[in-house]
Structures are given as structure tokens and as C-alpha cells.
Nucleic acid binder design. Structure first.
Lengths: 209, 209
DNA sequence: CCGACAATACCAACCAGTTTGTATTTTTTA
DNA sequence: TAAAAAATACAAACTGGTTGGTATTGTCGG
């Protein structure tokens, strides 16, 4: 690591974020050099001409989402280390990433120290160990519950609505009458002052719940 | 600007983004110093004890969204310059920000040069001029249309679905029969291989369309 | 000029969620 | 322990979107 420069490829559609990352990582490592790609599909097209040791891969991107990109990459270039970086972190997404071969999963709200540590770990292990940064759902619940008076059960139901389940599916899953789920949903809508299912989904996604 | 240090307050829930920004901005300005707050509600609580010259304010945050924060801030501290930084940029959001007193609106996918220029402009003007960075919707349309074969009309209708309009409202707006809108919607769903309205909204939001 | 595609329009049966109610049981907490 | 809050359950009328069709008109490129 001292004597051969390490090539890090950053794949993220946010120019500012990518540039910031490079600036931060360079601060302690003269031997890092970077490439920046801002679209998933360009990554796949150009990976043949690039030989990164490590890819920092955003999940949410135009062109091709990070998870599909990860899948394609690991099939062809399994030696390249990949750290997924995302805003979201439901367990489902994290597990999908790890099972498709990601070496680590980090949230965008980690600090640079944690990112550096993760990079070091990933670069210096013969793979196998995975590092995942599970999101603190409790914090999220805390603010919806205090601001909107959302109860635990309502919160639980919101989580299933977010992943696209119908009232019927939620009821089956939680062993509830569909009427109960309807009632909860009604109360959620009232408390959040939302008018239609679309607005609920937007609320959930935009507030990263 | 040479002799009195400039205090920049960064309000963004993404630690990495904020740290990256600070690293980038420090590179050319020794006379900048920074505070970082990661929640909208904490901003409002602590603004009394802070005297920033400039606030870089993210729109999407837990606690209190950036637009409300902007509103509250400008009411009390109209002299503080505020640059909104966001991932999204529908004209509605931009206009809302500018009308509530934001001095500029930038997307997270601008580069550091553009950010620096905007900061300089905002700091050196007696307010009045506004800088907004309207998103290149054409680019977005380009990739959905090439990947999913979405037509112009379908794209147009998707935009209204995204803001929560019903088929009826869209039909009125575009002078179409509701049957036409239904047909377009049906085709959109098929082309995107989506099963229900929830998935469509998720697709639109997650792909920032 | 013709074939493909886009845009328009229609229909009926169907499915999902909303609204506006009421009401019982369980749990929490003052 | 009594009151409040949360969770449960039900029902009917209603609104909005889906599914799987069909069909006409316009338009653009080969």
C-alpha cells in the first residue's frame, strides 16, 4: 500500500459528493488516485478499460441502479472490491447488496473516519468479511412519533406500505383483519395530513423512512 | 474577505457530504470556517447562538425540511445569505425556495467550481440577484426514453403523476379524455414493468425523474 | 406511399384505498 | 384504579386505478 498507488473508482451522480470524497481521501493518502463516473451504465461500458482496486458505488443513480451495476461487475471482475454507499438502508437492500457480492455497505451519513476504516479493512482482507452499516430506524421513528404522534403499530404498517404491500398483504403478514389495517392507514393519513396513497409514498421516500 | 474570516454553516444530514464540502471549500480559502448541523430542527434551535455569513442548506432532511427551515430563518435573520442545495429540482421547488428568500439554488450534481462561484456571488452582492440551477430534464427524459421506450406524451404524463395528480386532473389539464390518460398510464406501467401505482411513484422518485 | 409508431378514445369488470361512521378490548399511565 | 390511548374489528358507499381488450387518426421515415 505504501509503494503501489491504489486506484479508487467513485461512481456517483452527485459531482459535489464525489469531489468532496476525493478531497477527503487524498488528505491522508498520497498513494490514492481516483476516477469518477456519474452513471451506472457508463460504469459497465467503461469498466473494461479501467482497473480499479476499489469501487465506491452509489445505489441511486440514473442509467442503471447501483445494485444491478454491482451484480454485473462482480460477475466479471470478482477481484475488485466494492463498497456500496447509499442514503437508504432498509435491511432488504443491504442484504441484497451483500448477497450479490458487495464487500461493505455504508450510509452517506457516516463520517470520513468510518469510510477510511472501511476502505482499509476491505482492501486488506482476502474478502469474506462484510461490513454493513445498519440504519438507526429508531431515530427515524422517534421524530415521526413525536412530530406526528404516530404510534408503533402505525409505524410498522408504514414500513410495509413503503415497500409496496397492499392492505391485504399487510393484514396477512401481521395476522390482522383487513379492517384493522384500513383503520391504521386511515389514522396515519389523518395524522400526516395526507390526501392520497401517492402522497404517503412520497412522504415516506422523501423523509427516508 | 481577505481579513475577516467567513463563517459558513452547512446544514445537511449526510456527514460525508458535509465533510467533503468543507475539505473542498477550505482548499482555496483559509479564511473560511465551518459549522455543521445535521438536522433542520437543530438549526432553528441553535441559530440564535450562531452568526454565520452564509448557510448551505439541504432541502431533504429529517426533523424539519429545508424549505421550512429557510422560511423561519429568513423571517428572523434576513441578512444571512442562504444557498439551497438539493438533489431534486422541479421548477415548483426552486420557485418556492427563491420566493421564500433563498439567495441561490444549486443541485448536488454541480461541481465545486460552480459552488465556489455561487458562494462568491452571493457573498458579494447586496442581495436581489438570484441564481438557480434548473435541472436538465431533457437528460432525464433521454434515458427513460432510450431504455424504456417511453414516448414524449408518456413522459409528460409521468411528470404529473409524480406530483400526485389523478388521471382525471391530468386529463383536464391536457384536454384529454380520461380514457386516453388511462391508456397512457397503462402503457407506462407495462414499459416500466411496474405492478401498482406505488411502484410507479417509487420509480419516479428514486430515479429522480 | 406505406408501415410502424404515437396519440387518441372507448368499455366493462375488477381491485385497492378512502371516508365516515361505530364499537370492543387491551395496554399504558397519571 | 380509573381514564386515556392504542389496537383491534366491522360496514357501506365511493373514488381512483388496473386489466384486457378494440379502434381510429395522425405522422414520420424509409
Amino acid at each position: 500500500m505504501k509503494h503501489n498507488p491504489i486506484h479508487i473508482l467513485i461512481v456517483d451522480d452527485h459531482q459535489l459528493f464525489a469531489e468532496g470524497l476525493m478531497a477527503l481521501l487524498k488528505q491522508h493518502h498520497d498513494d490514492y488516485f481516483f476516477t469518477h463516473i456519474h452513471r451506472g451504465d457508463l460504469l459497465i461500458k467503461s469498466i473494461g478499460n479501467l482497473t480499479p482496486h476499489l469501487i465506491l458505488l452509489d445505489i441511486k443513480m440514473p442509467g442503471l441502479d447501483g445494485i444491478k451495476a454491482l451484480e454485473l461487475l462482480k460477475k466479471e471482475n470478482s477481484h475488485i472490491k466494492i463498497i456500496m454507499i447509499s442514503t437508504f438502508s432498509d435491511a432488504e437492500t443491504i442484504n441484497k447488496c451483500l448477497s450479490k457480492g458487495a464487500d461493505a455497505f455504508l450510509l452517506k451519513n457516516v463520517g470520513i473516519t468510518e469510510l477510511r476504516n472501511t476502505i482499509d479493512k476491505v482492501l486488506h482482507q482476502n474478502s469474506g468479511n462484510k461490513y454493513a452499516d445498519f440504519f438507526d430506524k429508531d431515530k427515524q421513528y422517534e421524530w415521526v412519533s413525536t412530530i406526528y404522534k404516530i404510534t408503533k403499530r402505525e409505524w410498522e404498517i408504514m414500513q410495509y406500505i413503503k415497500i409496496g404491500e397492499t392492505n391485504q398483504q399487510i393484514s396477512n403478514r401481521l395476522n390482522l383483519s383487513i379492517y384493522t389495517t384500513e383503520t391504521h392507514r386511515k389514522n396515519i393519513m389523518q395524522k400526516l395530513k395526507l390526501k392520497n396513497p401517492t402522497e404517503l409514498i412520497k412522504f415516506l421516500l422523501e423523509n427516508q423512512l
